[in-house]
Design a protein around this nucleic acid. Structure first.
Lengths: 219, 219
DNA sequence: ATGGGTCCTTGACCTATGTCAATTGCTGAG
DNA sequence: CTCAGCAATTGACATAGGTCAAGGACCCAT
């Protein structure tokens, strides 16, 4: 069984909000289920809500003149979608169809817009988005100019700070994914760092020497 | 001589705003000059404005307990900085110093917050940020999972749409940079595409066959 | 305990792409 | 015109890191 409030609290767009602000949103959400093949909305429909996919999988597509469909995006659990209607668009720019039985959280657009009238909520909402923005901008830079070793260290610094010890709450596989590499490569990089004596990672205990942080700036 | 309104209009954060909204911001901006070495603000100062660097270069740094400085970021012309004080922070979290004689556009925080009271402006501002957010998220995906050929085609699709002809307004060098590769590699990829007959690029005339777009989804 | 299923590691291998260097052509300043 | 300098191309080369395959360690359910 899924806790739908938690699903919402773990999304990119809304996850960083204070619990107060978050509650104001989850207050009015509705859960919807869709059978495989079911259409949630169609291109051109009035955009009255945004959605979070809780379980299942959704296909966003656009139909051209003579009915051929171009898949625009495959939505995975945990993703917010159709959020464009909040600010950009009056109507949905794509159609959304369930690829398998799916459960979704529906958040009324009007509710979000109303909340934004409140300076406190707005502040929080903006802060969250700006943080995300900075993170992504950083991420783009890191991906295009750092090797796996540096990506790993930046990831750790970003998540735990430049400490010399911490409890890891992710599997190596998940870390590999987070830094856009494969478990194999991560494994090799870790082995190299251990050999160099700058890092050990046993079970969930990670130890680092200060020298590990040389050349890794903050932010 | 620099046109400071233009500088602002070309930033990430504010560049996508409607000219109406943009004008409301540039209305109250002030231009400041700083000699090499000059401090714009210091860590802990009350954050009353955000800045756009027009010319020169700024260094953002943090000082630790005993005065050693850690450079957090080097600001390049065209970048907005200190925008964290809009939503996240009351005081500047870093110090800012000119690395060379610099000119900056100063935008009062209060002004921006006041403008956000206006639903129209807010809508525009949000739409802009969300667009940027989507773009970056896409970018992260593309960088970590597409090869140069695909990055090139996606870049073209994003900039001009999936047309079969257009006038290119960028040098190959600039395109290479935009898709995070080198001119040499771009050159080779272009040669391969020409050999395959899917693309030609002479002078600033680019021609493509529809087959070029196979496997490149929209959005 | 046993078997199947993860996760992790390690080795062998391959390929895309970066780097360096040389060549060509174009452009604009003098 | 001519030279300097930049953009673009091409070749030769090096390498980070992905892929595939095999094996070990651990965990859970039967």
């Amino acid at each position: 069984m899924v806790n739908f409030d938690t699903v919402v609290a773990e999304t990119d767009l809304l996850g960083g909000l204070s619990s107060r602000s978050l509650k104001k949103i989850t207050d009015t959400q509705r859960v919807r289920s869709l059978p495989r093949g079911g259409l949630l909305f169609t291109e051109g429909d009035e955009g009255t809500a945004i959605y979070v996919l809780a379980t299942g999988s959704m296909r966003l597509f656009r139909s051209d003149e003579e009915g051929r469909e171009a898949v625009v995006h495959l939505v995975r659990p945990g993703e917010v979608f159709a959020e464009a209607v909040l600010f950009d668009e009056e109507t949905y720019p794509v159609s959304a169809q369930a690829r398998e039985d799916s459960q979704l959280v529906e958040i009324p657009k009007a509710r979000v817009l109303a909340l934004l009238e409140d300076p406190g909520f707005r502040q929080d909402f903006f802060a969250n988005i700006m943080r995300k923005l900075r993170f992504l901008a950083q991420q783009v830079y890191v991906l295009s100019s750092c090797d796996v070793r540096e990506r790993l260290l930046r990831f750790l610094a970003g998540r735990f700070g430049k400490r010399s010890y911490y409890r890891m709450d992710l599997s190596k596989k998940e870390v590999a994914e987070a830094i856009a590499t494969t478990p194999e490569t991560l494994s090799r990089v870790l082995a190299a760092l251990e050999r160099a004596g700058t890092l050990t990672w046993e079970r969930n205990e990670v130890h680092l020497t200060p020298s590990a942080w040389e050349g890794i700036e903050d932010e």
